[in-house]
Design a protein around this nucleic acid. Structure first.
Lengths: 361, 361
DNA sequence: TTGTATGCGTTATCAA
DNA sequence: TTGATAACGCATACAA
């Protein structure tokens, strides 16, 4: 009788266990377990008294014991990233991962530069016994990394990556279609000289967005003009100089699509400085619907990329696959392509009627 | 003899256990455990063979079992945040938390709006059995939340919070001194009309930074001029309009200190637009040394706030305290005040010699 | 220097 | 509908 202390001790020690609850409710631990896991065959009366005991004792299940009993390690998933844009990462964490993490899965953040040797990532994954990986751009554009990951046996889910591999589940919006629609909208507004600020040349997303822009132009009988296209790298700074060149053109474009919001914000800043009124004299549209889109004046018309929801889905999908795998089933691979949504704000308008060259000067 | 399968099974099943390793090495599990935990009394030969077995079997310790055996739950710590600035959160995750998370602590991200009922946070903490909490601004300015947290029994560590409570460990830079030094630097450069764009009025950090600005001015015999002070809210957007007002002044300030980099970037944007050359005609300094400080042109002279290192320290401090507490010892409370470091980049210069009013026009 | 035995908190199996 | 018992993988007294 020395094995178990009395039920009061647990409270003093800090944590009540399932047997404390059982004793308190006058049932066996098995019954408590059943109540906790919502098993079907429990009488309402028993259930009630157990639930009361749980509340009384402030009982919280021990995840470690739970995991151990299920004879599996703690499920660990890692988010691999190489962020040119800390704000996007912040949003993912903030709204996405924050909500979707289950109490018994552990999410690790692993920074991996695109240039790094993928073997380093592999070592980390092996050492930490990571079973699932969430991949974000531009890492998913790295062939070697994708290969290494497949060989590691880890399940992989991609966010905003297009469809790099049939074995990977993915979620993202259709960049090409999204930009196609946004560009078409600007064309319908009456714009004919629409500039493009492309993203990082080594990110596939950048190419996809450019494709949407060009397709829309062509479908409206307009030949894409190389003089109206510039190559940025998705950073605010890269678009600063570009915006100056663009607005110095004679005649200048009446609209500019920047491949993300950061770059669109830079255009706004430069336009403001040159006295070019947005949207009266210049339409500016972005991509992402990130925080900055609501921060600037006027607020940006942009394409919503729900990174928060995407991040949440990715975690859930990954744990789904891991669970299935643990049960010996075939892990389900899912591909989700979100419909593009354009968020109309204040940065777009029809082009000025009669615009003489040099007005922006 | 039905209890244990043969050692090959583990590999097939996916995970080798400590007893697989023991059998493979021809020793007891105890010995393997000693090797794993670097216990002193193990003969080199034994150690070698065990280590080889570990490699051969690709053994990875089961954290769940480890935690359970230590008769404690998985250590869970939560990062509570309410981000006006996703980029800062991104940086914390990116460089800070990413490195410092130990394999057996679980870090949760919990978004808590400053306006929220602190009781909601408490419920989450209780439900998830969270033992430690990392607090960031502006949440640490919330008296009710601090109180609730203390009552919850969770250990609390503050990042960039000043020193809100003697029981909380904290890390941060001395905002006041940092801004004092930066302002003094501008004064030494020859500036006399230095504008201030304050941060969010309800963030204590904003008041601390303003204090540093005013103290430096007074120490140089300059009376702070209310006409040169504006109240932003730490967002890019809030500073946009302010910058226009500031530059429209006659005479305009020759330097502007913005209470964070985002707002300084907005000043840069507006200046560029008005043809005000930075730094030749206008010095602009920020605070944080965040990503944006290197993105804009010219790059910002700013105060380094090493959020990455701070985040890492916070996690380690928290687990330290939790460990001590688990051992029944007094948890050590530590207060770290980092020396301010000014990062000199391209956005500062002496004031223009002869500046006539209206030049910026 | 090495090994044996037991417990950590939970769940699954089987029996009542 | 409920309960007894044996794992799950590791660490730690205690022995040898």
């Amino acid at each position: 009788m020395t094995a178990k202390a009395d039920s009061g001790a647990a409270l003093v020690r800090g944590q009540a266990t399932i047997s404390d609850v059982a004793r308190h409710a006058g049932v066996s631990t098995m019954t408590v377990s059943r109540v906790l896991n919502k098993a079907p065959r429990v009488s309402p009366a028993t259930r009630d008294s157990v639930e009361r005991a749980i509340r009384d004792l402030n009982y919280v299940p021990n995840q470690a014991a739970k995991a151990l009993s299920a004879s599996r390690n703690m499920r660990k998933v890692a988010f691999l990233f190489d962020i040119p844009n800390a704000a996007v990462l912040g949003e993912m964490v903030s709204a996405g991962f924050a909500e979707s993490i289950q109490p018994d899965v552990q999410l690790l953040f692993i920074k991996t530069n695109a240039g790094d040797d993928p073997l380093r990532a592999l070592a980390t994954i092996k050492d930490l016994d990571i079973r699932g990986v969430i991949l974000s751009p531009p890492l998913c554009d790295d062939v070697r990394l994708r290969l290494i990951l497949k060989e590691s046996g880890a399940r992989v889910v991609g966010i905003g990556c297009g469809d790099p591999d049939p074995a990977f589940s993915t979620i993202g919006i259709d960049d090409t279609r999204a930009v196609y629609e946004l560009t078409s909208y600007m064309l319908k507004l009456g714009h004919r000289r629409i500039g493009l600020i492309a993203g990082h040349p080594r990110h596939q997303s950048s190419a996809r967005r450019r494709a949407g822009y060009e397709a829309a132009l062509l479908d409206h009988g307009i030949q894409p003009d190389p003089a109206l296209q510039w190559e940025g790298d998705y950073t605010y700074g890269s678009a600063f100089g570009i915006a100056e060149q663009a607005l110095a053109l004679d005649p200048p474009p009446t609209a500019i699509f920047a491949s993300n919001d950061d770059m669109a914000a830079a255009v706004l800043g430069v336009a403001r400085g040159r006295g070019v009124a947005v949207p009266r004299a210049l339409t500016v549209c972005g991509f992402d619907d990130s925080e900055v889109a609501r921060m600037v004046t006027p607020q940006l018309t942009t394409i919503r990329q729900p990174v928060d929801a995407m991040a949440g889905w990715a975690v859930r999908q990954l744990t789904d696959e891991l669970d299935a795998q643990a049960r010996g089933e075939e892990a389900p691979v899912r591909k989700v392509l979100l419909d593009p949504i354009i968020i109309y704000r204040g940065s777009d308008a029809p082009p000025p009627r009669a615009r003489k060259s040099g007005v922006a000067q």
